[in-house]
């Protein structure tokens, strides 16, 4: 029995998005980036949202974080636990972000402040949300960095971001995201900028975190390979709509929609099926 069917028996989803629509007003008419998307992430589940550029996958993630540009017009509902995200005040949203809900962006280098030591940055959520002193936060950061397999964390907390490799920076971002044991991690193409060997390590780490902390993860990507290795449930998006959803096995073995089939057929592979 997969996680989803198990979860369906007891309880409610961690994240529930219903009829989400995002419009960007333009001088002539408006552009609909997300068109009636509904999706769920259950506790301890890794959900992949896959799509090409312009599919609306990133806009869906940003809506959940309430990080869309100001001019975007959002409708529908987004619930995280019992909280209706779209109805929260900016102050309430700030409290939620980084606490119950954390975000791992694609470009860790740009997300990290180049003038602040890694330890302080990783520990910062604890200072902001748990009123820890910076000293206590940095010592907690050591544990967090150890948990994401950064070697010699006691020494590395003193480093600045530019002293970290791309993979290490992404680990630091993940450590920061884990600081407050959030219910949901939203990751937007977090491994796209990394080399494959490093990517494999980061994907392994995310799975490990899910198994250990029972954190739910919403994973946005364009890479079918990453989805196949990491996710339990998959939503396929195209032009702002979810065209197909299903368990990862089902999507890859019996795709139903033409768009999904086309994506599968377009993906280059190291394991071609011998033409008979």
């Amino acid at each position: 029995m997969d996680i989803r069917s198990r979860a369906l028996e007891n309880g409610r989803p961690t994240l529930s998005v219903r009829d989400l629509t995002v419009d960007f007003p333009k001088r002539s008419g408006s552009f609909r980036a997300v068109d009636g998307v509904s999706l769920d992430v259950w506790p301890g589940e890794i959900v992949g949202v896959i799509g090409e550029s312009g599919s609306g996958k990133t806009m869906t993630a940003l809506s959940t974080l309430r990080m869309l540009p100001k001019r975007a017009v959002v409708s529908g509902s987004i619930e995280l636990g019992q909280r209706r995200i779209l109805d929260l005040s900016p102050a309430e949203m700030r409290k939620l972000r980084g606490d119950r809900l954390s975000f791992i962006p694609q470009d860790a280098m740009r997300a990290l402040n180049p003038t602040m030591r890694i330890g302080r940055q990783v520990g910062e959520p604890l200072v902001l949300h748990r009123n820890l002193s910076f000293k206590a936060a940095v010592s907690r950061a050591v544990d967090l960095l150890r948990a994401v397999h950064v070697r010699e964390p006691e020494r590395r907390v003193e480093d600045y971001p530019h002293g970290f490799s791309g993979g290490m920076q992404q680990r630091a971002m993940i450590a920061m995201g884990l600081a407050l044991e959030p219910e949901l991690i939203i990751a937007d193409e977090p491994t796209t900028a990394l080399d494959v060997t490093v990517q494999a390590q980061v994907l392994k780490l995310l799975k490990e975190i899910r198994d250990r902390e029972k954190t739910s993860i919403l994973f946005i990507t364009h890479d079918l390979g990453v989805v196949s290795e990491l996710c339990d449930w998959v939503y396929v998006m195209y032009r702002g709509k979810v065209v197909e959803q299903g368990s990862v096995e089902r999507i890859f073995t019996e795709p139903r929609e033409d768009y999904t089939k086309m994506l599968l057929a377009s993906t280059p592979t190291l394991f071609p099926r011998e033409a008979s």
Binding site: D223, E229, L264, L270, P272
Partner: peptide
């Protein structure tokens, strides 16, 4: 070997669709 193993390839776990060209 390590490089090949690290590639997240959907058709390692799941068989590639028949209509996919093998490329060779």
């Amino acid at each position: 070997r390590a490089l090949i193993d690290a590639v997240p390839d959907p058709f390692r776990r799941f068989r590639a669709p028949v209509e996919l060209e093998s490329g060779s």
